[in-house]
């Protein structure tokens, strides 16, 4: 493990924020608090992107993740009124099993990093994270995956609409009778 005193303090602070918020996401009982902590985690990861000279990615991460996806989560939570504090947690058996398996995975990761002999010390190069260089690579080398991701979005949109639609039998049961009562 690297010595803590050698690590620069901006990196340390941001890492502590992101790890603490991630732990809160996992352990909090209320889903709304989980969503808010996850948004904080995304903010700190965006700050990491800025430190890595990936400015465009930092902005996109904020807009797409913290702005769009997390708002979608919040909408679903509030529309379904899911913010119950009393989520039945899994038993202690599950807690121990999950903790042991996640800890073992972390152990394997750290062991494999420590045995890798080459330590890259090169500093982040400026310019790779700017819109100009990213766009040049995206529209030359990765044009086909770019178009395919458009098709994937279309399929996901159609799928979400189809899944979210009420079927006719259900609708006649609940919604129309509900309206008549009102």
């Amino acid at each position: 493990m690297p010595e803590l005193s050698k690590i620069p303090w901006p990196f340390l602070i941001l890492s502590f924020i992101s790890i603490l918020c991630a732990l809160y996401v996992v352990t909090s009982n209320s889903p709304i608090r989980s969503v808010l902590a996850l948004i904080l985690t995304f903010f700190s990861i965006s700050a990491h992107y800025v430190m890595l000279n990936a400015q465009f990615l930092a902005i996109v991460n904020l807009i797409v993740y913290a702005g769009a996806i997390m708002v979608l989560f919040l909408f679903v939570l509030m529309l379904l009124n899911l913010n119950k504090e009393t989520e039945p947690l899994k038993s202690n058996k599950w807690l121990i099993g999950a903790a042991v398996s996640a800890g073992l995975l972390l152990l394997v990761f750290t062991a494999s990093i420590q045995t890798s002999s080459e330590h890259i010390m090169r500093h982040p190069e400026a310019g790779t994270g700017l819109v100009k260089s990213l766009g040049k690579v995206l529209f030359t080398d990765y044009l086909v995956p770019f178009e395919l991701s458009g098709i994937l979005f279309l399929a996901a949109m159609v799928g979400a609409v189809m899944l979210g639609k009420r079927d006719a039998a259900n609708e006649s049961d609940t919604e129309i009778t509900g309206r008549e009562e009102v």
Binding site: V25, V26, H48, M51, E87, A99, A102, G103
Partner: peptide, 30 residues
């Protein structure tokens, strides 16, 4: 300041975040 951050620090950080996420997937029911 930024140039003294090694890449291994980022590797450790993302490993920890990944394992926290894995723990959540295994443990939570919601």
């Amino acid at each position: 300041i930024f140039h003294t951050v090694e890449i291994s620090h980022y590797i450790y950080l993302s490993c920890v975040l990944f394992c926290i996420g894995l723990f959540g997937v295994l443990f939570r029911r919601n």
